[in-house]
């Protein structure tokens, strides 16, 4: 019996081996599956435009609805995408931790204290409807954008009111000034300010180039804009003097830092100056690159540079890409 079985097995075995290989040739495949690629914290195509600090976290927003946030204590990063997907241009936080992010198409998102984002649209036109910046000033959220968009809301991000009629001027940045004043840097050299909570507005013409940002430290202020132009004021914005040209790059943002100013712009432009804003010194911290930066966010450890990537310029002048994996 055993002999017969072994004999049959021996006769069949070559055909079984060949059949097995034929099956393998037909059906065995090298598996390239890795599952859905996870969303990395940083992507090479990231373009960030705004940042804010709230409740011990830092928040950054950018193109394709990207929201990147870091816990200040644990240094843990999180990334999410706001829906509906749109390019986000700015973000601001109230003292109570409510966040408002603004973006293209007149759309804004409010994150309540429970961490829930809700989206809504502001009444803007069909064209030129980008909301560019948002700030929390004097107990209200303020939003500016294309076509002279200027909106104000309550501290919880509700009850949005349009404060000015549409005009073919883009409002690029809204920032606080001394004594509760509100300042708006705008296209074509327009600098608007209100000293009565937005009821009435005055305008100053500072050249013809677009003004991109403004910052105050007490009575001293600096305005920056395209083609490297900058202006300073030592009297709370009552008068402005042009700063001698120190660059031809577009300058997109300015912040007051300890004892001076920091401005950032196109092609890696990064300059610092003392409070007098007379002499500007170029900075080129290693690893910071030469791509653009549209936003600056002052934090305790230094200043966060926001643009094609995010990084910290610490108080010692060293640059560190954020999150760490962005350094690859």
């Amino acid at each position: 019996m055993f002999d017969r079985i072994s004999s049959v097995a021996a006769r069949l075995s070559p055909w079984l081996i060949i059949g097995g290989l034929a099956y393998a040739a037909l059906f065995v495949q090298v598996d390239g599956a890795t599952g859905t690629m996870r969303q990395p914290l940083a992507e090479s195509r990231d373009l960030f435009f705004g940042g804010a600090a709230a409740d011990g976290r830092l928040w950054f927003v950018g193109q394709a609805g990207a929201v990147l946030s870091m816990d200040g204590q644990s240094r843990q990063w999180e990334r999410s995408q706001l829906q509906p997907v749109a390019n986000l241009q700015g973000i601001a936080a109230s003292g109570a931790g409510v966040l408002v992010a603004v973006g293209n198409g007149g759309r804004l998102w409010v994150r309540d204290k429970g961490g829930q984002w809700t989206s809504q649209s502001l009444p803007v036109g069909d064209v030129g409807n980008k909301l560019i910046d948002v700030a929390f000033l004097d107990g209200h959220f303020w939003v500016v954008g294309e076509m002279g968009a200027l909106f104000r809301a309550d501290a919880d991000g509700t009850n949005w009111t349009r404060l000015r009629d549409a005009v073919d001027v883009a409002f690029n940045r809204v920032r606080p000034g001394p004594d509760g004043s509100i300042w708006v840097a705008a296209e074509f050299g327009h600098l608007l300010h209100s000293r009565d909570g937005g009821v009435s507005w005055s305008s100053v013409q500072l050249g013809n180039e677009s003004l991109q940002s403004i910052a105050f430290a007490g009575e001293e202020g600096v305005v920056v804009g395209n083609r490297g132009q900058a202006f300073r004021s030592a009297d709370g914005g009552k008068s402005w003097q042009p700063v001698p040209a120190f660059t031809t790059e577009h300058l997109y943002d300015v912040v007051a830092r300890q004892g001076g100013w920091l401005v950032a712009g196109d092609r890696g432009a990064l300059f610092s100056a003392s409070r007098a804003a007379a002499h500007w010194r170029p900075l080129a911290p290693e690893g910071s690159g030469k791509r653009y930066r549209t936003g600056l966010l002052a934090v305790q450890e230094g200043d966060v540079l926001i643009g094609s990537g995010i990084g910290l310029l610490d108080n010692e002048g060293n640059y560190r890409a954020w999150p760490a994996e962005a350094a690859r």
């Binding site: 070559p14 040739a25 495949q29």
Partner: peptide, 17 residues
Amino acid sequence: LLRDQIEAIALAFLVVV
């Protein structure tokens, strides 16, 4: 590559047999 390599081995075995 893999499919054809296995196929070639199977056929080579067949030829031998």
